[in-house]
């Protein structure tokens, strides 16, 4: 689904289902250098289970046009504007990695547009390895490779994709390779520059956080630090799963999402 917003074309995956204003809206936000397809194992399922499911491509990502937004604050403001333009009321906002920061900041700055947050691969601070940041700045293939290597748990590097025939590692790398020059660096720099401040004091809606025990990019310890600041938060664990949990453990994530979103 495409729509025009602030002079650009914004692309969504909706599970092949038209947006239904009578269904509770769920908006999913991808991580650095990625796009809507990281939610491919959840979007269509939610769309057929009582939600208006929308996985958005941020500006300059996937099939959305427009200039890249260079800070998490800018991304959050843009997303809040987009939610208001959808005229669906407050949404259940789901984020992955950088998408978690955007979701948190959207809820903090624009509490009227978020009803609840579900965060996967979340941390209050997301420092980026200097070699990765350098490779991304130079648009080297090393950047997608390092992100792919670190983003998956041990099992996902060998096998275990429940979708017959799909190979997770190359799927992630190919997705990142498709990003236009500058996209990965823009996003990683935005993550590494982000300072959460008193985010816990500003977010008023309930939060569910899902953490993978083998997440190297937002390790469980970093997720725990984030969660500790919030009063109304539920923390769910996935054993043996890495940062790309929506694809590494799609069945569990669907169940967790369904429970958290209802």
């Amino acid at each position: 689904m495409d729509l025009e917003f602030q002079g650009i074309t914004v692309n969504f995956a909706t599970g092949g289902v038209e947006i239904d204003h009578s269904q509770p809206p769920v908006l999913m936000v991808h991580g650095a250098g990625m796009d809507r397809t990281v939610w491919s194992q959840q979007t269509r399922y939610l769309a057929h289970h009582g939600f208006s499911a929308m996985a958005v491509d941020l500006p300059g990502h996937g099939d959305s046009s427009g200039e890249l937004l260079s800070t998490i604050d800018e991304m959050a403001d843009w997303l809040a504007g987009l939610i208001r333009s959808l005229d669906l009321g407050p949404v259940r906002l789901v984020g992955h990695s950088m998408g978690c920061l955007i979701a948190l900041e959207t809820a903090a700055r624009h509490g009227d547009v978020t009803e609840r947050l579900v965060l996967m691969g979340a941390a209050a601070a997301m420092p980026v390895h200097p070699d990765l940041l350098g490779a991304a700045e130079r648009n080297e293939i090393l950047a997608p490779q390092l992100m792919t290597a670190w983003a998956h748990g041990t099992r996902a590097h060998i096998a275990g994709n429940p979708t017959p025939g799909l190979w997770m590692r190359s799927g992630c790398q190919a997705l990142l390779e498709r990003a236009a020059d500058g996209v990965i660096y823009n996003d990683l720099f935005a993550c590494s520059s982000y300072e959460a401040g008193d985010i816990a004091g500003q977010v008023k809606c309930p939060i569910t956080v899902i953490v993978g025990s083998e997440d190297k990019m937002t390790p469980p310890k970093a997720t725990a630090q984030l969660v500790a600041g919030f009063s109304e938060v539920e923390l769910l664990h996935l054993e043996g799963i890495g940062h790309m949990m929506m694809l590494e453990a799609p069945d569990q994530i669907r169940e967790m999402m369904l429970t958290a979103l209802q």
Binding site: G16, T37, G171
Partner: peptide
């Protein structure tokens, strides 16, 4: 064949694999 799914929209870079199967 699958209730209006667009393989490129849902699966992006994996659209070919998914439709072929």
């Amino acid at each position: 064949g699958y209730h209006g799914i667009s393989f490129a929209e849902e699966y992006g870079h994996q659209a070919l694999s998914m439709r072929a199967r």
